[in-house]
């Protein structure tokens, strides 16, 4: 019944669908990775709990939907706000005290935080996968022959816009200039009347908020469990390593590339290989171009 030409056409459509899906997920990777790269570039500090921040954003979305029956706009803002506060608190109570300490303390601090958040989430929410109940973003849309879930489309587009917005905030506003000034030279910034502690707290807030929104966006389109934080944390490392440390545009391109590579390797080799390919790419990158694709040595 099916002509080979139809089959080839259907395959091409499927491939296109995989590509679009990968790019949309990659946009969300870009959003939370830009938060990680901001902290990294600004303070030369790695937040090992960044993936857990994304995971918390997802559960904030779930709680807002189930308890307050809030829509996507509500839980998106709620996740951003909750994680912003968490980010500031983590900076003021933890990071500020260890950031100039020994390397072991720096790494252990957020690593301990990651374990604490991950296993507390396991304890409260159990290890089962959950997904959001029906939201106003349910359903699919036909884009010139390829079927995309509305939620995925909206989440991806919002993520791109927010990543661009973060870049504009850093490069086009006074607050952004102050943030970058602290990143450039903490002491010189202090002499210019900028309070580095405030700026760094703000950076942590923005970074965590980007993770929170990214989590909320992803929650609309994908199921999750408390263990996703680990995967997202590693994904963010790979994106930042690819895009260059401290570069938000770099994170955007790299996020899209990683999303695409994951989707294609899942399509061609099978779903279990998507992380293997990405981590393998990371290992290769460390060998070949450790400063990242767009980074300066």
């Amino acid at each position: 019944m099916w002509g080979s030409k139809d089959n080839a056409g259907a395959n091409a459509m499927l491939l296109l669908q995989v590509i679009v899906g990968g790019l949309l997920l990659g946009a969300i990777y870009a959003l939370f990775s830009s938060g990680l790269t901001l902290i990294w570039g600004m303070m030369n500090f790695i937040n090992f709990a960044h993936g857990e921040f994304v995971m918390l954003g997802m559960y904030v979305a779930l709680l807002v939907v189930t308890w307050l029956a809030g829509g996507p706009a509500t839980f998106g803002v709620a996740a951003a706000f909750a994680l912003f506060v968490l980010g500031v608190v983590v900076y003021l109570s933890l990071v500020r005290h260890v950031m100039r300490g020994p390397m072991l303390a720096q790494i252990l601090s957020t690593f301990g935080l990651a374990l604490l958040l991950r296993y507390t989430a396991f304890w409260i929410f159990s290890a089962n996968f959950v997904s959001l109940p029906q939201t106003s973003l349910s359903g699919t849309v036909n884009l010139g022959g390829i079927l995309m879930p509305v939620a995925q489309l909206v989440a991806g587009l919002v993520a791109v816009s927010l990543t661009v917005a973060l870049h504009l905030l850093l490069t086009r506003t006074a607050v952004g200039s102050r943030l970058l000034a602290v990143a450039e030279d903490r002491n010189a910034a202090m002499l210019m009347g900028i309070r580095p502690d405030r700026m760094q707290a703000l950076a942590w807030g923005l970074s965590a908020a980007s993770a929170g929104i990214a989590g909320a966006l992803m929650a609309t389109a994908y199921p999750w469990s408390p263990s996703v934080g680990e995967t997202f944390g590693l994904t963010a490392f790979v994106v930042v390593a690819l895009g260059g440390f401290g570069s938000v545009p770099g994170a955007l391109y790299a996020g899209l590339i990683i999303g695409l590579i994951q989707a294609l390797s899942a399509y061609w080799f099978g779903p279990i290989y998507k992380d293997i390919v990405v981590y393998g790419l990371f290992a290769a990158l460390l060998w070949l171009r450790p400063q990242g694709l767009m980074g300066k040595a």
Partner: peptide
């Protein structure tokens, strides 16, 4: 474990 690590580091 997470709590111990965090407190130690801090």
């Amino acid at each position: 474990y997470g709590g111990i690590i965090l407190v130690l580091a801090r």
